[in-house]
């Protein structure tokens, strides 16, 4: 087995507050990403998935406190100097953000912004013409027609789908080893979503770029990822092969989440919502973070938090009473 590309151990992100315990939004998150692997992180808003992703590039808000270990190719990211992290950003690890409408600088040409991503890491100092050619090639790669001409456009002259593709082109400009895509399809309509997902799959197949895909859309995970990590209230609660997790979930939260997804073979039935609200990160909650909403919770669930423990091959779950994986499919 080769060494992991990215290895996260006991990652924590918290926001200190004056005269109160700090707000912890990510705690005890650990997982690995192998070179060329596509891993999905699912979870609802506020589950800490975006903060986990942004920690990798150290792009957290100024007031955030980071703890734990993030190793990229064996190098500890939290210990890097500002210059080292800048050299890594956009070159070895790059990121596609959620909202294509606001991710481009509105007053600069698309081509210049993509060109900037290249020029910032271009040790050979290519000339303007070489840079333009490279930008046009990238835009063509993501399926934008007439790329040399379109590179001169401003962001407001692009549609949402085109912008997301241009953003992806910008993120892969330097053939990164890891691409972090933070809800890349959330703001797009369904047909365009599909195009962007195909694009990501092609990138992965053609250049071996590992992808960490953050989403709250389980269908997206099902179509793209071999492995999925489920997050809830800042913790990884389940981590395993996508087909296993989606068909035979072991954590009650994952199970409830799957129950709330509309399915075409069960048309006409009411969707099941998960009762209650996710816990407020500002108020500490003892025990398993899901226990107030869990139909099977017993006394110890509210007293002590379970660890993420292996259950089957390459599958982990953070639960005292993991589901047996068979009943879930029948329910």
């Amino acid at each position: 087995m080769s060494a992991p590309l990215l290895s996260i151990r006991e990652l924590g992100v918290s926001f200190p507050r004056k005269e109160a315990p700090s707000t912890t939004v990510v705690e005890g998150v650990s997982f690995d990403i192998m070179p060329g692997e596509i891993v999905g992180i699912v979870g609802e808003s506020g589950s800490g998935k975006s903060m986990t992703a942004r920690s990798v590039l150290r792009l957290l808000p100024k007031s955030a406190e980071l703890s734990g270990s993030i190793r990229f190719r064996g190098r500890e990211i939290p210990e890097m100097t500002d210059e080292e992290i800048r050299d890594m950003r956009g070159a070895l690890v790059s990121m596609v953000f959620q909202d294509p409408m606001t991710s481009f600088n509105p007053v600069l040409r698309i081509g210049d912004q993509i060109g900037e991503a290249i020029a910032l890491h271009d040790r050979a100092r290519r000339g303007r013409r070489a840079l333009r050619d490279r930008v046009a090639k990238l835009l063509a790669l993501v399926g934008i027609a007439d790329p040399a001409e379109r590179a001169r456009s401003y962001p407001h002259e692009f549609s949402g789908g085109m912008r997301q593709r241009a953003l992806t082109a910008m993120a892969v400009a330097n053939s990164p080893a890891l691409l972090i895509a933070d809800e890349p399809t959330t703001a797009l309509d369904v047909t365009v979503q599909d195009q962007v997902l195909s694009l990501l799959r092609e990138l992965n197949e053609n250049s071996g770029t590992a992808i960490l895909l953050i989403t709250h859309n389980i269908a997206v995970v099902a179509s793209l990822c071999r492995r999925v990590i489920v997050m809830y209230a800042g913790r990884v609660i389940e981590d395993g092969p996508t087909d296993e997790v989606l068909t035979a979930p072991r954590h009650p939260y994952t199970w409830s989440l799957l129950q709330s997804v509309p399915r075409i073979d069960q048309a006409g039935t009411r969707l099941t919502a998960i009762k209650g609200q996710p816990p407020d990160p500002a108020t500490p909650l003892a025990g398993c973070k899901f226990h107030p909403r869990c139909p099977w919770a017993e006394q110890r669930c509210g007293e002590q938090e379970p660890a993420l423990s292996p259950i089957g091959e390459a599958h982990g779950v953070r639960c005292w009473l993991p589901m047996n994986g068979i009943a879930a499919a029948a329910q």
Binding site: L57, L59, R89, F97, E116, L120, M170
Partner: peptide, 8 residues
Amino acid sequence: LVAEAKGA
């Protein structure tokens, strides 16, 4: 944020 993520 995007510009920072590019390494600017």
